[in-house]
Nucleic acid binder design. Structure first.
Lengths: 208, 208
DNA sequence: TTGTCATCTGTCACCGTCTGACATAAATTA
DNA sequence: TAATTTATGTCAGACGGTGACAGATGACAA
């Protein structure tokens, strides 16, 4: 019943072992105080192998949140074309949160752990922001495609930039510890989206 | 007439020498291909001394833009209390651009050079965003102080986050090459601020 | 089962960033 | 000029990250 071969399963196992080992060590000793050698030793692989799975040290903590960005992009592409950019982005984000709630428990726990760590570690936070900005370009491209405008057009940039700003503010002071607290994510999201709606003029994100 | 002593002047000179050497080398060879040793050699100091002036390699390229952030904060504090947050932030930014136009020519040239480099180098751009986010906290604190609310309050976060998003979009595709093109900055700023005003409801950034 | 092939892994050597410690040289002050 | 700061150079080293090569291991066909 296991689609992937032994080799592939082994790879996934060491990948998760590295992530878990890193997350634990980071939580106990702090990010900077933990060396790649320690992570590799804890996961029972050579230091060189670590870098075959993750390009940089922060990648190991950021890989899960980055996957989340990927999901957001996928959900955005799935939204109907009638929805204006900001609405589509909002609904895509709602779908991501829902997906997180319905996902595997261990996976959710890992994600929360990683998020907590990233939020409280400046170096990791910086890396996270960097990847978010890279992804922002792809969000802009997708919005431009939906709206039938050029990616150089100001509106997609403006809409996406505003949306990420809103989302960032919404989640920055929301720290669910366990998977039980997860609905807090959804509530917080609705709260901040409501505030955004109160602040923005109707139809601002679509040309008339 | 020179207020600071010889020692202080010498320090400023090597500091500028390091910045100029770095900016030149970065422009010619690229950021990653340039080593700290090369920069130090070009500025005629030991590599160790480089790190006494700049904590990291990217610091040397980012120090000027970071100074700009400092100016923004100072100008914000100088705005009258009647101005709502977003207006005060806008006017503070206008003041920064004006200050840049009226400043020393060589200084302006350096700033433009650094900005161009940061914009086109992912690693530097990431560092730039990181520092901007650190500064964002101070902007939030200042807005909260002006409005007499807690820094934990959602509104200062929201207002500052929206403003930086707007500013970022406005400047991202504006690349004045020489000091002559500098008015383009101001025009671009007015353009994006007008778009923001069209998109936001009047009075959104202040409690009623 | 066996042998071939592709792929993953460990070892080694290396470069570049960044830091602590110590000695030296230069500027400041008396 | 002598004494005291303070900046700088030299040195050694930790850590992140990479290329190259060899050996181990799973995939696959005969």
């Amino acid at each position: 019943m296991s689609q992937p071969g032994l080799r592939e399963r082994k790879k996934q196992r060491t990948r998760l072992a590295l992530i878990d080992a890193a997350l634990d060590l980071f939580a106990v000793q702090g990010y900077e105080a933990t060396t790649v050698d320690q992570i590799a030793a804890a996961a029972d692989v050579s230091p060189r192998t670590f870098f075959r799975y993750f390009a940089t040290k922060d990648d190991v903590a950021l890989s899960l949140p980055v996957d989340g960005q990927e999901v957001l992009l996928r959900e955005l592409a799935a939204r109907p074309a009638e929805e204006p950019p900001f609405v589509a982005l909002s609904n895509a984000m709602r779908a991501v949160v829902t997906e997180l709630q319905e996902g595997d428990l261990a996976e959710t726990r890992r994600f929360l752990k990683a998020r907590e760590l990233v939020e409280s570690t400046p170096a990791l936070f910086a890396g996270s922001v960097r990847r978010m900005m890279e992804n922002e370009q792809r969000l802009i491209a997708e919005v431009a495609r939906r709206e039938g405008t050029s990616p150089d057009d100001l509106l997609p940039h403006f809409a996406v930039s505003l949306f990420t700003a809103v989302a960032r503010v919404g989640f920055e002071s929301c720290h669910p510890q366990s998977a039980q607290d997860l609905p807090a994510f959804g509530e917080r999201l609705e709260q901040i989206l409501a505030l955004a709606e109160r602040s923005l003029r109707p139809g601002w994100d679509r040309l008339r």
